[in-house]
Amino acid sequence: MHFSDKIYVAGHRGMVGSAIIRKLTAAGYTNLVTRSSRELDLRDQQAVADFFETEQPDYVFLAAAKVGGIVANNTWRADFLYDNLMIEANIIHQAYVANVKKLLFLGSSCIYPKMAPQPLKEEYLLSGYLEQTNEPYAIAKIAGIKLCEAYRDQHGCNFISAMPTNLYGYNDNYDLQSSHVLPALIRKFHEAKERNEPQVVIWGTGSPLREFMHADDLADASIFLMKNYNDKATINVGVGEDISIIQLAEMIREMVGFEGRIVLDATRPDGTPRKILDVSKLHRLGWRHKISLREGLRQVYADFVEKRANEMQESIHH
């Protein structure tokens, strides 16, 4: 990838896409192409075809997706399947039509079977049943991986797929109805502290183990893979360490400075008992994450507080 090559980042407003844009810009790449969803509906086949014909990008980072937590995934099942299928099918096909040099498709660790052994190795894909709550999203992501493989097999396209672990970072979603666990906990503890509440209730038993990676680390890994990885097989991107939900909650409580107690609501679902990626393949290539969970949490909490303050200012002015 040369500094003047035209690079299209699909989903540049999202948490991952915006992190990729920041990393590329900081590294000196000057020819970046972006379109907001208002400017270009990636579900619209003709619109995507016209965009690729006009722009003719050299490289494509496919970070656009409809994403959400357990509640969102389970509620809008048709949207999650349809939107994600359309987005990836349109972009991957047009990348082939436009002779894009290389495309990186970003999947998700939820593609792996619910009962697969831990840590999750790349070859466990399609070896068992998926987690029911986010099956539509997982099916769409698996289709994206298989599309990349098929275009490689049939047309010789250099399309690669990376599977990131649970992510957090700047531009995260803090909506309690549709967010993931880490931003939801940050918001819950922050609001409980503001309201002097005696306790914060957390879903489930607190025992599930999860791996969390800063989106800036994923962006760094994505650029590394774009430069160094050319295999058909998917590659996991994670930190290779996990933490229980209760430990995460304690870490966030301490960071926020909430004095109350944590109450576990065991009537709520836990989800998979453990989810951690085997990242030995990525480590062998020579890439490791740089941002520790504690440091990453400090960064995003500061960002969250600043955004809240700005929103308060805006609402006062209106």
Rank of each mutant, 00 (worst) to 15 (best):
D216H: 02
A98Q: 07
L225E: 12
M86R: 15
L293W: 06
W203A: 13
D231S: 04
G128M: 00
K114F: 05
C110E: 01
T205Q: 10
A72S: 08
E191A: 08
D58G: 03
M86I: 09
M251H: 11
Y301W: 09
L104V: 04
I202D: 04
T267D: 08
I235Q: 00
I111Y: 06
K23P: 01
S179Q: 12
K6F: 10
L285C: 14
A27T: 10
H190E: 12
R38E: 07
W287E: 04
F3V: 06
Q94S: 14
S179C: 04
H190C: 11
R284H: 14
I20T: 11
D303L: 02
R38L: 04
I223G: 11
H318I: 01
N310G: 02
I111W: 03
D50C: 03
G260K: 00
Q247V: 12
T272S: 04
L85C: 13
D50L: 10
S207C: 14
Q199I: 00
V48Y: 13
G286E: 09
N196C: 05
V9D: 04
N196P: 05
V100C: 03
L293D: 13
D58N: 14
N158H: 09
G206M: 07
K275R: 07
G240H: 01
D278C: 01
R13A: 01
E122R: 04
V279F: 06
